[in-house]
Write a protein that binds this DNA or RNA. Structure first.
Lengths: 185, 185
DNA sequence: TATATAATTAGACAAATATCTAATTAATTA
DNA sequence: TAATTAATTAGATATTTGTCTAATTATATA
C-alpha cells in the first residue's frame, strides 16, 4: 500500500466524530461491539462498519472471545503514524506524482500564438517569470553570448527582447559583465 | 474550540486526497491558488474551498501579494498536532463525555421485570458481570455479613442468590472467610 | 477612472458515506 | 440437535461533501 493511501485511510478513520470517540473509548480499555453500540447509541451494524474502517487503517484489532469480538486500540500504529507526520519527508512524498511544471506549461500555452511565439509578454510578475524560466532554456551552460546573440535567441519567444533580457538578469537566471551574457550557475 | 472539534477539523482536512496533495505541495514551497489549481487540475473555486478547510484546521495560512493569495503550510501546527497524538491523555479525553455506564444500565434494564427485580440472570459472562457490579452496591464497605444476610440482600435482585454469591466471590468483588462475607477493598 | 485579473462566495449537482433494518454467519447453550 | 446470541454483511436511504459555473469582491494596470 502506498504512503498516500495509508495516510488517507488513517486520517479518514479518525475524521468522523463517532469513530474518533470509539478510538477514545478503546484507548481506555478494549470493548466488545455490543458495548460500544450501547455507549454511543448506535446500532451494532453501524459500529461494526466504523470498526472495519479503523481496522483498515491498522488502528484497532479484533480478538475473538466466545461470540464476542473484543476490539483493542493498536497504540503502536497510532504512534508510528504520528511520528511519520513529524518526519520532514512524509508530506512532500505525497506530492511526488504531481507534475510541478503543469502551471508553467499552462501559462505558456495561454500566451502562445499559432507560430509558437508569445502573443504578448505577461504583465503579472508570476507569469512573466514563467516565461523567463522558459527563455533561459535557450542558452547553453558555460557559453558566453554577445547582446546581439542574446537578442536573436530571445526573439524566438517575443519581439520585446529588451524586457526579456532585463528580466533574466533581474531574477538572476543570467549574468552580465562587459557586454557579455552567460547562464548563472 | 474543544480538543475534539480541533482533532476532527485536523483529520478531516487531511483525509481527502486532493487536500492531502495540496499539503504535500505546500510542504515544498508556498503557492498561489491559481498555481495549485493548475497542478491539481481543479477549478480555482474548488481549490479555494479546500484551502479554507485546511486553514480552519490551522494547517495553512494565506499571505496577500498583489491580487495573489500565497498560501503556506504551517509546519508548527502539523508538529503540534502530531505531538498531541503521541500524548497519552489526548485520545481518552475525546471520550470524556461518554457515559461509561450506559452499557451496564442497558443490560440491567433488559433483564429487569416490572417489580425491579431481574426476570433472569444473564447467561453471557459479560452481562452476568454487569449484574454482579450492580449487586455489589447493596453492601457497605467495612461491614461483615453472615451468609444469611448476604442472601437476603441479593434476593432483592434475583432469587438465585447462590449464583450471585458465588459470582461475587469469583470475580473478587467480595471476600469470604469463616462463613463471613465483606466487600473487597 | 475603467478594465482586467485572482480570489472568494453562492448556488446547484453528483459522488461519497453514515446510518438503519433485514438477512446471514459463527459460536454457545439447552 | 435446536434455539439463542453477537457480529458481520447486504441493501436502502438520507446526509455530507467535493466539484463546477456564475456572481461578487479586491487589487492592479491602462
Amino acid at each position: 500500500m502506498s504512503t498516500e493511501t495509508e495516510l488517507i485511510d488513517f486520517f479518514k478513520a479518525l475524521a468522523e466524530p463517532k469513530r474518533l470517540k470509539i478510538a477514545g473509548i478503546l484507548a481506555q480499555r478494549p470493548h466488545a461491539v455490543e458495548e460500544l453500540a450501547s455507549l454511543l447509541s448506535l446500532s451494532e451494524a453501524t459500529v461494526s462498519h466504523h470498526l472495519s474502517l479503523l481496522a483498515r487503517a491498522g488502528l484497532v484489532r479484533a480478538r475473538a472471545d466466545g461470540h464476542y469480538s473484543i476490539y483493542e486500540l493498536q497504540k503502536d500504529r497510532l504512534e508510528n503514524m504520528a511520528e511519520r507526520l513529524l518526519a520532514k519527508e512524509t508530506l512532500p512524498a505525497v506530492a511526488a506524482d504531481v507534475d510541478m511544471h503543469a502551471y508553467d506549461r499552462a501559462v505558456l500555452r495561454n500566451f502562445s500564438g499559432p507560430d509558437g511565439r508569445l502573443k504578448a509578454l505577461p504583465v503579472q510578475r508570476k507569469k512573466f517569470e514563467v516565461v523567463l524560466r522558459h527563455a533561459v532554456t535557450l542558452f547553453k551552460p558555460g557559453k558566453r553570448y554577445t547582446e546581439k546573440e542574446v537578442n536573436k535567441l530571445l526573439a524566438r519567444i517575443h519581439e520585446d527582447t529588451a524586457s526579456l533580457r532585463r528580466g533574466l538578469i533581474e531574477i538572476k537566471l543570467m549574468q552580465r559583465a562587459n557586454g557579455e551574457y552567460w547562464l548563472a550557475s
